[in-house]
Write a protein that binds this DNA or RNA. Structure first.
Ligand code: FES
Ligand code: FES
Lengths: 159, 159
DNA sequence: CCTAATCTATACTTAATAGTCAAGATTACT
DNA sequence: AGTAATCTTGACTATTAAGTATAGATTAGG
């Protein structure tokens, strides 16, 4: 249960593109690569995932580059993370972790499964209510905003 | 951001040991291995992590086996998951994902970091309030119980 | 039409996780 | 003491994720 590199870099790239969108500007792979400190080839690989997910669009050739495919406010971070790193508790998780048994021997009635669902719901609670637009604020604004998420009341962000 | 195999199997083993504990019974590696459908060698590897984490204790030799190191009610699932799979948003995550730059170029004021913290808190909200004891109920009881977690009110478990 | 700047696709290498294997150490029982 | 059942350890292999390399396709502008 760890954030993946794809999730981290992918989201950072999107935020950058959203900012560039304010000035109607496209960003090229070299630009993004340098801004995030990753290799151009790796940036390209990440951008491809974002393009296939429908979050950004690309223009080729001179004067080309990447822009958001739709307004930042309509891009749910939950969807972005799904595209970049899959779900925490995939629907086939129990099937694929059944070892040699046909399925978790407790599968008809499994409290562990119930716990994973609860964790997944808790994560979705935050991610599905956050849009790319919400990430275009400074950290402090973001901290207060996140506390207003219903179901996440009382979250304490001091770590 | 995916559950790891260690987390899944480790937690399942622990639940099994908790049930065996009701009858003051130790479970051997072959027993656990067969019950969970994984190889004995793999079960041994997982049990080792749990032992090093202080959740189970082992007795060697004939009549040996594994038992819980302390009462199920005092084993926080959050701690177990930390031992088995690390944290979602490790404290050095941003440092180790800075690419060639010394750190995320937005690091003094990063809304993405704030989001990751919020997700981590949401996960902790569930896991730190759940003990192994809570997992010793059937799935339905577990579903209702999980809804009572403060801060997770209104969670909907239908997936 | 040619060129330079750009994205695209696939294959490759490296690192991390998942899972196996084999040799050793401890204990109960006879 | 001897034996069989048990855990312990470290090294090994396989699979997946992270990151690189290279050749090709598209476009603006001269
Ligand atoms: S059904 Fe998935 S852990 Fe039991
Ligand atoms: S500081 Fe971690 S993503 Fe910006």
């Amino acid at each position: 249960m760890k954030l993946s590199a794809n999730e981290e870099y992918g989201l950072r790239c999107l935020v950058r593109l959203a900012y560039a969108g304010f000035e109607e500007r496209a960003l090229t792979i070299p630009e993004i690569s340098q801004a995030e400190g990753v290799s151009p080839a790796y940036a390209a690989k990440i951008l491809r995932v974002l393009r296939k997910g429908g979050f950004v669009k690309a223009a080729r050739g001179k004067e080309g580059g990447y822009t958001l495919a739709r307004p930042a406010a309509s891009i749910r971070i939950g969807d972005v993370i799904d595209a970049l790193g899959g779900r925490l508790f995939e629907s086939d998780f129990c099937d694929s972790h059944a070892g040699q048994a046909p399925i978790c021997t407790r599968s008809v009635d499994c409290s562990v499964r119930s716990l994973w669902r609860a964790v997944q719901v808790a994560v979705d609670q935050v991610l599905s209510k956050t849009t790319l637009r919400d990430l275009l604020q400074n950290e402090e604004e973001m901290n207060s905003w996140v506390r207003t998420i219903p179901g996440a009341n009382g979250l304490r962000l001091i770590q």
